[in-house]
Design a binder for these strands. Structure first.
Length: 113
DNA sequence: CGTCTGACGCACC
DNA sequence: GGGTGCGCCAGAC
């Protein structure tokens, strides 16, 4: 299982109409400080990777971070089409942010009493 | 192996 | 509010 595969797995779990930050994806992919690498993975997405909802990944402040020409507009359009409110300031993560089920967190297992 | 780079994040001005 | 600097680490060379 490569880092890239874990990232795509995590992103694929984000439900329609919700968003997560690069940092969170990195965290859940097992590399808490590898937020930049998450961006690198999404940057290199191909059709062969299937329907990965890359548009649901935004930066920690709810902003769009892609630099690919046109991708930013596309991302905003896709998010709005699934109900996410994208304002001038970006997205309200408190409202649209998503977190995976607690039992999906390997390190979230509470220590025995 | 060593180096470089960057869809980030955060601490500081 | 904004702008800058730097640590981060997986992957490409």
């Amino acid at each position: 299982m490569t880092f890239r595969e874990r990232v795509l797995h995590v992103v694929s779990q984000v439900p329609r109409g919700r968003v997560v930050s690069y940092g969170q994806v990195a965290l859940w992919a097992g590399s808490p400080r590898a937020a930049r690498q998450v961006g690198g993975v999404l940057f290199g997405l191909r059709e062969a990777d299937g329907d990965v909802p890359w548009q649901r990944v935004v930066n920690a402040r709810g902003g769009i971070s892609t630099f690919k020409v046109g991708a930013g507009e596309l991302q905003i359009a896709l998010l709005r089409s699934e109900g996410v409110e994208v304002g001038e300031q970006g997205i309200d993560l408190v409202r649209w942010g998503w977190a995976p089920p607690v039992d999906a967190w390997p390190w979230a297992v509470p220590p025995p009493a």
